[in-house]
Structures are given as C-alpha cells and as structure tokens.
Design a protein around this nucleic acid. Structure first.
Lengths: 189, 189, 189, 189
DNA sequence: CATTAACCGAGACGGTACGTCCAGTCTTAGC
DNA sequence: GCTAAGACTGGACGTACCGTCTCGGTTAATG
C-alpha cells in the first residue's frame, strides 16, 4: 500500500501525518501532539516522520500552512468600513473557531519558547497575513478614502492588535460588536 | 545545609527554587526549565518541589508574581496623555526587557496549550494588571477629561492590545514612538 | 509496592528482572531477550534496568551467576574414577538440560562476538568452574592415585573439552556412556 | 557499473557482498555486520542482498564456506603420530589465526542462539570437517596402527574437543605443545 | 536490430528495539 | 514535620536496522 520508491516520498503518508497532528491537537490538545502519537494515529513509522520533518512543530507548521492557504483574503466591496468590518470579523472567527486557528494559537504559544519557530512562523504566515491585512487600507488610499501618508503598518497594529490580544492574552470572546467597534474608532480618526 | 525542621517549610528552599527557575528560564530557555533541573540547581529535592508546587508552571507563576508585584503602578501626573504615555512605555519595557516580562511571555505561551494555566494567569496577573491599566482612564473620567460613558475596557484593549500583539506575535520592537502614537490616536478620538 | 528509596535498590525489582530474562531465554530464545521485553515481563521500567545493568548480557550474566552458584561442586567419594564419572555426568546435565546451562550456552555464544563479555565470563564463571573441575584430580594426587607431576590443567582440558565440544559445536547428546568413556580413557593412561 | 542482465545474478555483486561481510567482521566485529552496512560497503542495494541471501548469517556462511573450501585436508605421511600432530596444529592455526576461522567462531557463537543456523553449520561445515578429522585415524586402522574396533568418532572428540574448548570457552592459546600433548596422550592409550 | 525480461542501484516504507531524559510518586534518615 | 537523597514506574524522545516494496536504468538473448 505504501509508495516508497526512488521517486520520492509518499504523499499518502505525508497527508496522514498532517491530518493526525491536526486531529490530535484539536481533540486532545498540544500536549498530546507527540511524534509517537502522530505516528500511531497516522499508521506511519516514526522514521518516516523524522525523515521529513525535523520536529513536531514543523509538522504543525506545515499542516497549518496547508490548511490556511486560501483563507482570509479580505473582501473588496469598495468601501473601507465594510471591508474592514468583514475582514476583522473573519479573522476573529478564524482565530477563535477554526481548526487552523487553533493550530496557529498553539504555534504562537510555542513560539514564545522557541525563537527559531517564531522566525519561521513570521516568515511562513505572518508576513502573508499582514499583507492581506493591509489590502483594505491600501485600496482605500487609492480610492482617496484615506490620506496617502497614512502609516499603514501602524494602522494594522491598531486594528488587529486588540483582536490578537483578546485571543492570546485575556481569552475573552471576540464578538462582531468588538471588531465593529474597533473599525468605528479607527474610521472616526 | 538543609533545614529540615518541624516548624513548616523552609523559606530558603522556597526562594532557591524560585530563583533557580527564573535563572534557568533566563539563561537557557523554557525547555530547560525542568523540575529536575530546578531541583539540582536549587540544591533541593524533587519531592520538596512537588510538595509545594503542583507543576513547574506554578513555580514560574509564583516567581513571576513575586517579581512583578510592585511594578507597573501607573503614574498619576494629573494629565491623561502624560499618564498614558508613561504607563504604556513602562509596560512595553516590562514586557520586552525585564526578567519577569520574559517569564510572563513564557507563561502566556504555555497558556496557549494549557487552559487551566490560562485561567490562573488571568486570575493571578491579568486581572490586577488590567485594573492598573484602567486607572489613568478612570482618573481622567473623574477629572472630566474623558466622557463618563466611555467603555473603559474597550479603551484598554485598544491601548494595550497592539503592544501585546507586537510582543507576542510579530516580535517587532515596541519603541516609545509606537506607544506615544497609540496614545495620540486614542486621545484624538 | 516498589521499594525504591535511599537505602538502595529494590531487591524485588532486581529479582523480577533476572527471572524475566531467564524465562525469556528459556521460553523464546536469545533473540527474545530484549531490554524492553524484560522490562515489560518483569513489570519494571526500562530505566531501572539501565540504572543497574549496562546491557542485557550483564543481566544474563548475573542471573546465571546467581543460579549456578551452589551447583556443580564435585563429589568426593574417595575414588578418582567414581568422582570423575559423577562430576562429568553432572556437568553434562548442567550444560544440556538445566536453565542456567542454557544461559551459559547463550553467553558463551555471545562471547564469541564480544571480547569483553568473554573476559567477564571467564572471570565470573570459568575460573571457579575450572577450580571445581580440578578438585577430583588434586584429591587423587594427594591420595597417591595420580602422579604428583601430573599437568592438572591439561588433564582438565582433556576431560571436559570433548564435553563442551559436543555441547557447543556438534550438538550431539552427551550421554553417560560418553562421559564414562572419557574417564575410562583418561584413567587408562 | 552494475551488470543488470537477464541471464542471472551479478558475480561482481555477489563477491562484493561476501567481501564486505568478511571485512566488516574482521575489522569491526560481528555487531557491525548488518545488512545495511554490508550493502553500503559493497556498493550494492539491500534488495540485491535479500534477493540472494535469506539473512546475514547466510552471507557469512557462504563467505566462510568459500574461503575455507580447500583448507585443512589432513596430511598423509604414513605415520599416525606425524599426521595427527600436523593436522591438529593446522586446525588450531585455522581456528585461532585465520580470517575464515574468525568467521567460523562468530557463526558458532551465533549458532548458540539459532538452532537453524546450528543445523546448517553442521551440514555445511562440520560434517566435512569431521570427515577430514577422521582420515588420519581411518588410514591408521587400515595400516594396522590402530585396532579395527576403535570408536573413531569418540577418538575425534577426544582429539579436537579440547582444542575447540580452548578456542571457544577458555580463550587460552593453542600452542603446538598443547596439540602435540593431546596426540601423545591419545597414542599412549 | 529493436524488444523486453531479468537484474541492478537507490531509497522510502512500516516496524521493533535501542539507550536517554524527564515526569511525578514513594520511602527513608537526619535535623 | 520538613528536608535531601534517590529509586521507582511510565512514557516520549530521536536513532539504527530490519525486511518489504516500488521505481528507472542497464544489459543481452529473442523475435
């Protein structure tokens, strides 16, 4: 059944590992994400895991990157407020409700102990995500809705910072009223 | 050297454990904070640790709470802008530069994998800290600088959220310009 | 139930390990004597095994030494032929039929790949055994049954060599006729 | 480099495997004789090994059989004492000094854990060797030097048994005096 | 003279056992 | 009664080989 051969790795094994890691995280928490557990659940040998991933966080990182790939492109309705409200709300749902969001929270947690992972996480995910976060603002500048000299990065920090803060620090829910309020305060300025 | 006696726990042992945990975290990172490592470094038996702390995160939590206790009381200069700027800057320094800040980052990271720790962290630290964060705003309301119906919690999220976001997520520095800018934007509203 | 404490190791664990190793060898052969298998069967943690024994052959060596301790003291009936016949027969039974004999065969086999084990085996067992093998001859010399200038070591080689040869090399049985014949040939000289 | 063809196995690969196994045993001991190690050293695929040999001991067995093939034919000088002394001395040298002797010792060791190998070893080697060992005696019987009713097998056990015993068990050297002495004692009877 | 079957190397695969590290529990002797 | 010491079970770590399995390339008899 397995497809090990000179043409390279088994896609079936790869996917089974990623799925197993995801499932273990979702069902039993980060502490249950062990290489042995993944191997058993995926029906894969440990060596196969170590052959392709340096550590278990690399598995989660790949699983996350794959799952998250097409998500979170901000909508473009032609109105800054509409776009921002929709985007922040979707980001909040992603972080608090989705499986890849749970993986991201776990990885962000682990990154506090592991600078190398922190760097990788920023390279692999945050860079792209911030680019997506900037889109509504950049389009608004083009449309003249926002001044051309706006500090976009600062604006992004103001908009998404409180959201991540709730998710990662206070653990409070992030209802639509909250994200809408953030947008409202931002626009009033 | 050990101070076995029938009169209660050894304060020397307690402090040695807390110091050892702090030092290990600072010098060799969270992964090096093991109960055995702490015991060896502190010159203490593992059992002594387990007698007084349920787990290693409890040690860090206690070490952190002790170190952090008197810090971060927001100044009261009688002016909202001045107070907020000073407070946010000190918070930023605390989170990014201080040893207890490093412990807090590590604990916050661990809390992403450990809901029980998350709860404890909020109880033991965040509650108090948020109260301190609210002080400048409450005083400003009393002074009439801010409207009485201000949603203070939301305002705190707006002010400190971007700061934690930089510390925990993007890893970017948090210079005084950044915190000043946050205050400026907040006050302009 | 376990008795780990500062006074030293658990005798129960020690004996369980030795028994498990013995049993595995007897029941399922040398290939089944794995540290993990011993640990499981003995109801002991692997770490406990590695704490006290450097390798699995050390376990077998200790098990063997303990089992073999009081065996094989040659009889003293006051007659060389009688004593030698009895001693060789008992040695043959020990090597071919007994559990410690099976362990010795396995260790002797392993010693062919492991010079250090070979040395240990000679120190721990063969030295004593050869001393026992010499006893009947020495007593016969004292009684005047054998010349005082007899090369005792050579005589031992002649007497037991063919026996070990059958056991270890040809695998033929070692019946009483065979050992009796060896003695007869030796005495006729 | 490889010689794939439809007409049978590659002799080059076969010989490379046998040499690699021999060399590994001689240089790094039995524990280093692994199928992977042999394959790497021989520049051969593991599959090629498994195609032709059921296990690594089969490789050693074949290597040994090939190396040993023409050795050890007992001389025929027409005198029993002369022939036996020469034959035992050559056997001692073979077992203690030669490369195939080292392989035989390793195989004999392994055979203590592996009854199937023991059987094969007796079939492939010991049978022939014992036949060679019997030759000097049979010729002496024909010449009338020994009685016709001599138990030849027993005599062989007496002559070579002590030699194997020293090689496999006590590890003592087997000098010419020793083998000569065995012959002398045998002839005196 | 092109096909094509038998053999080759390479190497991924599911497994088992290795020897290590740490978690968390337990027992004892000393102060 | 608390302490240091340290043995204990348990479980995950990362590594080494096992024996099995494709695969693409090489070669030589066959068609």
């Amino acid at each position: 059944m397995h497809r090990g051969n000179r043409h390279g790795r088994s896609e079936a094994a790869r996917q089974a590992v990623l799925d197993a890691a995801d499932d273990l995280l979702a069902e039993r928490g980060f502490a249950a994400v062990t290489v042995e557990g993944i191997a058993t659940r995926a029906g894969v040998a440990k060596q196969t895991i170590y052959r392709w991933w340096p550590s278990k966080v690399d598995i989660l990182l790949e699983a996350f990157t794959q799952d998250m790939a097409e998500h979170l492109f901000p909508p473009d309705e032609g109105d800054l407020g509409t776009d921002l409200r929709a985007h922040l709300h979707r980001l909040a749902l992603f972080l608090t409700e989705s499986d890849p969001g749970a993986v991201l929270r776990a990885l962000t947690g682990q990154a506090q102990h592991d600078p190398e992972l922190a760097t990788r996480l920023r390279t692999d995910y945050l860079g792209q995500q911030r680019e997506r976060d900037r889109q509504p603002l950049l389009r608004a500048i083009e449309r003249g809705e926002l001044p051309a000299d706006l500090d976009v990065d600062l604006a992004v920090d103001e908009l998404v910072g409180p959201l991540y803060y709730r998710v990662l620090v206070t653990g409070e829910p992030v209802p639509r009223e909250f994200t809408d309020h953030l947008v409202q305060r931002f626009l009033r300025n």
